[in-house]
Design a protein around this nucleic acid. Sequence first.
DNA 1: GTCTTGTATCGACAGTTGTCGATACAAGAG
DNA 2: CTCTTGTATCGACAACTGTCGATACAAGAC
Lengths: 125, 125
Amino acid sequence: MIGPVTGQGTVCCSPMVREPLGEEDAAELSRMFKALSDPVRLRLLSLIASHEGGEACVCDLTGPFDVSQPTISHHLRVLREAGLVGAERRGTWVYYWVLPAALAKLSALLQAPAVPTAAEAKAGA
Amino acid sequence: MIGPVTGQGTVCCSPMVREPLGEEDAAELSRMFKALSDPVRLRLLSLIASHEGGEACVCDLTGPFDVSQPTISHHLRVLREAGLVGAERRGTWVYYWVLPAALAKLSALLQAPAVPTAAEAKAGA
DNA sequence: GTCTTGTATCGACAGTTGTCGATACAAGAG
DNA sequence: CTCTTGTATCGACAACTGTCGATACAAGAC
């Protein structure tokens, strides 16, 4: 079984600079950020996202790294369990693709006001 | 000594779905995401960012959590060393504020195409 | 069926991380 | 000076994480 992992609840989304995160939101979001907290996983994700057709076979992903195949497999599982990528076996190969909604959620969360220099923030808004 | 921690190099920035991350970029970015990979730190960051004036005293930050004061101090240091917040002592209190450029960098990186359904991506772009 | 190739799981191990209590440092009050 | 309060550092410990080699599973070729 490889299918996308449950999770993916409806959580948060407006910039975190607006209002404090609740405990539950923080827990779910931290799980996603944790999946992004390893350089190999970050490169895997960008490799998948930028691959032609928006998806990549594992066979495309093991070459560019100095780590073993089981390690790549482990990292792909972490990305999948965090809800950042989907995966499917098609014949001999297993394909991975990015789930754009997940990235968008994190991106929106981190959106910061242009230049909130504290002075500006105090002034108005 | 509390001032901002070196680092903060010029790195990356266009969406990671465009082209694969280089090893160095991935290393620096993963350090920032690692700082976001703990629920307490995420809540700390949002608490700081959404606090009036764009900054918060540590004394504002210890109350809302169930963890000890040294633990909060540790998490604040991690956020600071990742280049996500700045800090300064003013008299008795120490203030923390978010560094918006850092959040913006991560936000931009995660920006995903609206609906890249693989089909669309293949079609044109 | 056997053989080969692609991918996942297992078990182990070193390194890292979150947490705490104890303690040290910083700065103002008296 | 001493005392009090706010914050950081230290040292320890359990829990988690990244990595590996060995191995199992999946699917096609023969």
